[in-house]
């Protein structure tokens, strides 16, 4: 294990050793090198911490994913090549988790948080002040509450004897056992409830930066609300939309506590997204190697999204 960490550790020193372009022209070479080293030395604690606890586990993750490590009996672990991945793509439970993760991400992040966040931010610019503050407070409170509390609250809301069915009964609509019949929809809505504030805040900031003259001149030219939204507002905040979609998706990909508190992936495996599946395989079924292979796939998807996000940011950094 330490091999993974040790092999990366020396890298911490090398970048500091070569830091050119220091604007100190009249000093001897050795002194200059020492100054550079001193300049970049504050970076050391953070770099060490990141290498040990982030880069180390990622390297270890890559290694374990190609072995048949099990929770009991580490001695028996041996290199199995791509067997874990082959197993995954032939495993109906894994494919089920992939589909559910896609459904969860599309409903809760792209359709839910993103659209609702934009709608709320847009409405807030037109609404009266008390209503705006009240809505903001409610949406943000849902966001600030710890994940596990949000899970419990939404559990009581969707439960068979819970508030949602009480409301439906009051409206003379048929009740449902939501957590049993549509568990993935219930956890998706829970994630919308919990995550919309972030999108709302990003879009509020983005909308307030649109110059008023542009909207007004479009209004004078007779562009209606929908056309202004499509041709002016959306193009002008497209960068915020990209950023927000990336961050929402990345956050949604790693949701565990919310689903665990509400359904534990059940009933059966009908709300088992990839993180829950990974945990289930690695710890409840003791297949660490297989669970880690799934984790590595999740990490790769995350990495792809991160690279896209970096490209979006690159224009601004």
């Amino acid at each position: 294990m330490t091999g993974a960490v040790d092999s990366t550790a020396p890298r911490a020193g090398t970048p500091r050793a070569r830091t050119p372009h220091a604007p100190t022209p009249h000093t001897p070479k050795a002194h200059r090198a020492r100054t550079r080293l001193l300049r970049w030395s504050p970076l050391a604690p953070a770099t060490v911490l990141l290498l040990l606890f982030l880069a180390g586990p990622i390297g270890y993750c890559v290694y374990i994913a190609f072995t048949d490590t099990q929770l009991t009996g580490q001695e028996s672990a041996s290199f199995v090549g791509l067997a874990n991945f082959r197993h995954a793509f032939g495993d109906p439970a894994f494919l089920n988790a992939v589909v559910l993760t896609l459904v969860f991400t599309v409903i809760s992040s792209i359709l839910g948080q993103n659209t609702l966040g934009l709608a709320l931010a847009g409405l807030m610019r037109r609404a009266s002040r008390p209503v705006r503050s009240l809505t903001g407070a409610m949406v943000i409170t849902a966001w600030v509450l710890p994940e596990i509390v949000a899970g419990f609250l939404l559990y009581t809301f969707f439960e068979r004897r819970g508030t949602l069915n009480a409301l439906l009964g009051w409206l003379h609509l048929p009740a449902q056992n939501w957590l049993f019949t549509l568990p993935i929809l219930a956890v998706s809505f829970a994630n919308v409830w919990r995550g919309t504030a972030f999108s709302m805040l990003i879009y509020s900031a983005a909308l307030s930066e649109i110059p008023q003259e542009i909207t007004e001149s479009a209004q004078v030219d007779g562009a209606g609300g929908l056309r202004r939204l499509w041709h002016i507002t959306l193009p002008m905040i497209r960068r915020s939309i990209g950023t927000n979609l990336m961050l929402n998706t990345l956050q949604t990909l790693s949701v565990f506590g919310l689903i665990w508190a509400m359904t534990r992936g059940g009933p059966g495996n009908r709300s088992q997204t990839l993180p829950v599946f990974m945990y289930d395989q690695a710890f409840l079924k003791s297949l660490i190697g297989y669970g880690t292979a799934v984790a590595l796939l999740l990490l790769l998807v995350g990495a792809v999204f991160s690279v896209v996000y970096l490209r979006l940011m690159r224009e601004e950094v």
Binding site: M1, L54, S254, V255, F256, Y279, A282, A295, G302, S306
Partner: peptide, 13 residues
């Protein structure tokens, strides 16, 4: 941006 959830199994190990 990396999903920290994904590395918890190796971190445990």
């Amino acid at each position: 941006c990396l999903p920290i959830t994904a590395i918890m199994v190796p971190v445990y190990g």
